[in-house]
Simulated assay, not measured.
Amino acid sequence: MSASTPQRSAAMIASIADDGVPTTQAPFGHALAELAERDERVVGLTADLGKYTDMHVFAAAHPSRFVQVGMAEQALMTVAAGMATTGLVPFASTYSVFATRRAYDFIALDIAEPQLNVTIVGGLPGLTTGYGPSHQATEDVAILRGIPGLVIVDPADAVDVEQAVPALAAAPGPAYLRLLRGAVPRVLDRYDYRFEIGRAAVVRPGNDVVLVSSGLMTMRALLAAERLSEHHVDVSVVHCATLKPFDEETVLREIDGPRLPLTLENHSVVGGLFETVASAMVRRGVSVPLRPVALPDEFLDAGALPTLHDRYGLSTDAVVTRVLTELGRG
């Protein structure tokens, strides 16, 4: 193996944290293990991906409440559903692409239709890996949004993940959590923020531009806002941790005005945050131009993750440039 190979691999699975941003290791695994200390109903399952969805942390803390089903994502959903019918509270983890593309029917009919308390934990959502279309779940939200009663959560950072885990366990129905794993950024603890299912949060006020964001793009929105202040651009950031149910009231109140609105998401421009906001605007008669920062409607390249984020417009530098261009200063 050449000396360059480990560097290339590391770049393809690099942390999504920008330079200088503090991180927390495996917040999902630790939050789930901590929750299980307080609630004996909590169980964890995975389909041969415990290490790569941070479920291994839970497995080490609670081995008798951990189930490894092997490479069988459809069985994973069915087993989780069966556990939920007995009163247990399952968290079932795999990669987002496998949950959505391989196990959709089992999620829809075994979990969602009977409204069981199962949280599906999807690793590598959007462009959080450089390993090409087989692993990049750029359309996972679009696939799952049509399932009735399914909560969809796209956390921004470790703070969001830590608060979402107990909230989803306490909610009565099914949920899909877009997992941030490994060294996860920690940014929201600088703001007066609390996760709440179905609520968006104005984490940063501003007078010139409104960035409506979800997932890791909230971190990028906040970093871009700081950079844009150097250009005398005052930026508001609205974080939408819950994509379904969607907080139309908060988001439309923020974008219905003279400020330039953009949506920022780690997802295809089709079927995600941008279209959710645009649909709400049409139905409620809000007629302001809305610009998307999102992944294109195409299969993405493989390569080093930081390079791909620059290429597809998700990096902090790209967001700053895009806002300045939209304002006519680019």
Rank of each mutant, 00 (worst) to 15 (best):
M1H: 12
S2D: 10
A3D: 04
P6S: 11
A11K: 03
M12R: 15
A17V: 14
P22Q: 04
P22D: 05
T23D: 04
T24D: 00
T24G: 00
Q25W: 07
Q25E: 14
A31E: 02
L32R: 09
L35E: 08
E37F: 04
L45T: 01
A47V: 15
D54W: 05
H56C: 05
P63D: 07
R65L: 08
F66E: 12
V67T: 15
V69C: 04
A72W: 09
A75K: 14
A75D: 14
M77D: 09
M77Q: 14
A80E: 00
A81H: 04
T85N: 05
F91C: 10
Y95G: 06
S96G: 15
V97M: 15
T100H: 11
Y104F: 12
I107D: 00
A112C: 11
L116P: 04
V118K: 08
V118A: 09
T128K: 06
T129R: 05
G130V: 15
G130H: 10
Y131H: 14
H135E: 04
H135P: 00
A137M: 05
T138M: 10
D140M: 10
A142D: 10
G146I: 07
I147Q: 00
D160I: 06
L168V: 10
A169W: 13
A170W: 07
P174K: 09
A175Q: 11
Y176L: 11
Y176A: 08
R178T: 07
L179S: 10
A183F: 05
V184F: 06
L188E: 14
L188Y: 08
Y191S: 08
Y193N: 01
Y193F: 15
R194F: 04
E196C: 01
V203G: 12
N207W: 06
V212L: 05
S214F: 02
G215A: 09
L216M: 04
M217P: 07
T218G: 10
A221E: 08
A221L: 02
L222V: 00
L222Y: 00
S229D: 12
V233C: 07
V235N: 08
H239Q: 01
C240V: 11
A241M: 02
A241C: 08
L243E: 03
D256V: 00
D256I: 01
P258L: 03
T263N: 00
G271V: 03
G271I: 02
F274V: 11
E275P: 03
S279M: 08
A280V: 06
R284K: 03
R291N: 13
E298K: 05
G303M: 06
P306R: 02
D310Y: 07
D310A: 07
R311P: 01
D317C: 01
V319M: 01
V319W: 02
T321F: 06
